[in-house]
Structures are given as structure tokens and as C-alpha cells.
Nucleic acid binder design. Structure first.
Lengths: 139, 139
DNA sequence: ACAACTTACATGCATATACATCTTTATACA
DNA sequence: TGTATAAAGATGTATATGCATGTAAGTTGT
């Protein structure tokens, strides 16, 4: 009897949904979703950055990022300035954004610790390694 | 120098985005997205099923599934009947739905083969195993 | 039989995500 | 110096996803 062939994509999506909900529940007190937290975090590390640099960092479509930034700009966490190349926009955290990030980072650390503990170091390495390999498939 | 601590959730999300785009591009000729394909596939294997059985199978929130079904019902791929328990709905593939699934399954097989080849058997096992473990975290 | 509770599903709302396409600005080259 | 091309973003459209909440229908205890 041929075993059921699991769809790699569905399995990954299921894991993604579960993991995102876990991180989201930890981050909830900050009012941020994990995707928003990731954007703030990326900008924090990249300092003054641009839309396209963020796209690469987050492996996110240009149009997706464009929209994802909106609520963060609207709520005053990210500041936008026209670049030297006037097509570009410079993105940076506002004071409010840095404060929020600092608070949310504590919650994120809890989530990361919780999941790390549940997975164990081996499975954690496996997740990171596998994710890396899959991202490499991007053409 | 402490290495950068990767967010497990972000890494998984990035992989998820890339993989979903690959599967979506293979499935595009059918007009289905992978999430829709997964729903048809699940109903095909479960035969006559219900909303809540699908939720468990797909690890999907009740409200998410409720909405995901809409376009598939609207386009005539899934038939809905009230169950014996009149709160429930019986879901089954229509003839049109079975035909579409059969066509899309060929495209899915190509995607699955493409990705399996790129990943290799070990990484594939790793993906499935890791996904399974993460889904287990769901409380 | 009836009130309290629970279960199944839908809806309002907000964000997440990407494809096709449009606008604006820069660059390259005849 | 124009003009074709490329690059950066935004927008229209559609689905994906989940939380809070609402509604209808079944179940339970008295």
C-alpha cells in the first residue's frame, strides 16, 4: 500500500500557521503582528533603509511590502523620506517606533524562548536550515 | 561576537512564501491557488466531509476555512448540503470539482516532483518532520 | 417543557500576500 | 538632446488568515 504523499507546501503552510499564531499570541500585548514586528526589526538592524532592501531581507513581494508598511507609517512608527533618487523612499524608525520595538522585543524573546524550548536545539537547527534551503529555491 | 538570532517565525514565513509561490506558479494553468487545491484534495480524500473535519485536516481556523470555501462553492466545485445535524454542512466535490482536481493534480505532481528534486530526500524528510513537530505545538 | 449551555457556522474588521498594471523618475544611447 | 528602456513604488483586484462576535440549532439538567 503506497503511503499517502504529503504535499510539501501544505505541510509547510500548516506549520507556518501554527507558529505564527504562537508568536502572535506572545506579541499581542504590544499590538503588533509578527509580520509587523519583523518589519520594525529589519528596519532597526538596517538603520536607514529602502523599500527594496527590505523586500530582499524579508523575502517579500514589492507590492506586499508596500501595503504592509502602511499601517506602521499611519500609526507613526516608521518615518518616510524621499531619497536622493527621488523614486526611492528612505525608511527609518521614529522614536515611537523604537520604543514600541523595544517593548515588543521582550515579548518576542519570550516567544522565541518558548518555541526554542519546545523544539529543542536540533529541531530548531532543522527549521532554520530547511527554511534557508527553501528560500534558496527562489528564482 | 554574538551571532544574529534569527526569528524562527520569520524564517519559516519566508520559506513558506517562496514555496507557496513555486506551487502556485505550477498550479496557475488550472486557475487554482495552492490553498484551494489543498481544500479540494482534502475533500477528495475525506469524501463527504464537514467544515470542522476540514479544519482539523488543514489546521485552519474555522473562520478562515469558512471564507476559503466561498469561491470554490461560488464557482461550482464544491457542493454544500445541510447535514442531519442541521447546524452542519456536508461538503463534497461536484463533477466539475472532480474534473478540475484531476487536472490540477497533474500540475501539483509536477510541482511536488520539482521541489522534491531540488530539496533531495533528506531535506524533504526534514521539512515534513519539522512541520509535523511544529503543528504538534498547537494547543 | 424550558432555561442554560454548547456547538457549528457566518460576518465585521483588519492585516497578509501576490499578480497585473500604472505612474513617476532615472539612465542609456543614438 | 530626445527617446527608448529600466527601475521604484502605488493601486486595483482577489484570495488568505485570524480575532471578536453574532446567530441558529442541538444538548442537558431540573
Amino acid at each position: 500500500m503506497e503511503p499517502f504523499e504529503h504535499c510539501l507546501n501544505l505541510e509547510l503552510r500548516k506549520a507556518n500557521r501554527v507558529l505564527s499564531q504562537i508568536y502572535d499570541s506572545f506579541l499581542a500585548p504590544s499590538g503588533l503582528k509578527t509580520s509587523q514586528f519583523s518589519i520594525l526589526r529589519a528596519i532597526k538592524f538596517l538603520k536607514n533603509t529602502t523599500n527594496s532592501e527590505l523586500q530582499d531581507t524579508l523575502v517579500l513581494d514589492q507590492t506586499s511590502l508596500s501595503r504592509a508598511l502602511k499601517p506602521l507609517i499611519r500609526d507613526g512608527y516608521i518615518d518616510v523620506r524621499v531619497g536622493v533618487d527621488r523614486r526611492q523612499k528612505q525608511l527609518l524608525l521614529t522614536v515611537k517606533g523604537r520604543t514600541l520595538y523595544a517593548d515588543a522585543e521582550k515579548l518576542w524573546l519570550d516567544a522565541q524562548a518558548y518555541v526554542s524550548d519546545k523544539l529543542g536545539p536540533e529541531m530548531k537547527r532543522s527549521l532554520l536550515n530547511m527554511s534557508d534551503i527553501v528560500v534558496e529555491l527562489k528564482g
